[in-house]
């Protein structure tokens, strides 16, 4: 929701099934500094529920920056859970991941976006990813991409209707098979 040069947003996320459930509620704030640079902050409230083991919660803080280099090229960077917060229950071995990410996007016209990222999740290997979004017709776009470490392929589509966006995606992992994802968003 834009308020002059400031933007606010909220998000809700759910993952898992009845025995293991992760939920997140986020609140984000971003501010434009001139026509090229945008900085943002996001706080997230995490809840983890495992059947028979109870519930634990935690807070995390993400920070990001976005810089429009040229009309076609944009550069972005963000760090997730910068303050290295964790779940309040110290016994759980599930932790809120700390990650550092940089990315570059290239958009030769208003239909095509190619993006590449380099991610480092703490205690894991550096991952490189690339993705394409191709808006075939004004309200429908196809997407595809992959990451290298581990090797995963992604494909999906996005539907736009007035202020609503519906995104569907599926991940294919050579060892784990397919896992689908869905997101709905509303922009003012």
């Amino acid at each position: 929701m834009p308020i002059k040069n400031n933007f606010v947003a909220t998000s809700f996320q759910g993952y898992g099934f009845s025995e293991f459930k992760e939920s997140k509620v986020g609140f984000a704030y971003a501010k434009n500094f001139g026509p090229r640079l945008t900085l943002g902050l996001k706080t997230t409230y995490h809840q983890l529920k495992i059947a028979g083991y109870g519930v634990t919660t935690g807070f995390s803080l993400d920070a990001g920056a976005y810089y429009q280099l040229t009309k076609e090229l944009a550069f972005g960077a963000f760090a997730a859970n910068v303050s290295k917060q964790n779940y309040t229950n110290k016994e759980t071995s599930v932790y809120i991941p700390v990650s550092y990410n940089i990315g570059l996007s290239y958009s030769p016209n208003d239909k095509v976006l190619v993006a590449a990222t380099i991610n480092k999740v703490l205690k894991e290997r550096v991952d490189v990813g690339i993705g394409i979004d191709y808006q075939i017709i004004p309200f429908f776009g196809l997407r595809g991409g992959l990451t290298v470490n581990p090797f995963k392929q992604y494909c999906g589509f996005g539907l736009k209707y007035k202020h609503f966006t519906l995104d569907m995606a599926s991940v294919f992992d050579a060892n784990l098979g397919y896992s689908p994802q869905m997101a709905i968003s509303y922009a003012f």
């Binding site: 016209n109 239909k111 095509v112």
Partner: peptide, 10 residues
């Protein structure tokens, strides 16, 4: 083979 834009092909 898709020509996404003048500069990009897939």
């Amino acid at each position: 083979l898709i020509s996404l834009s003048r500069t990009t092909s897939l």
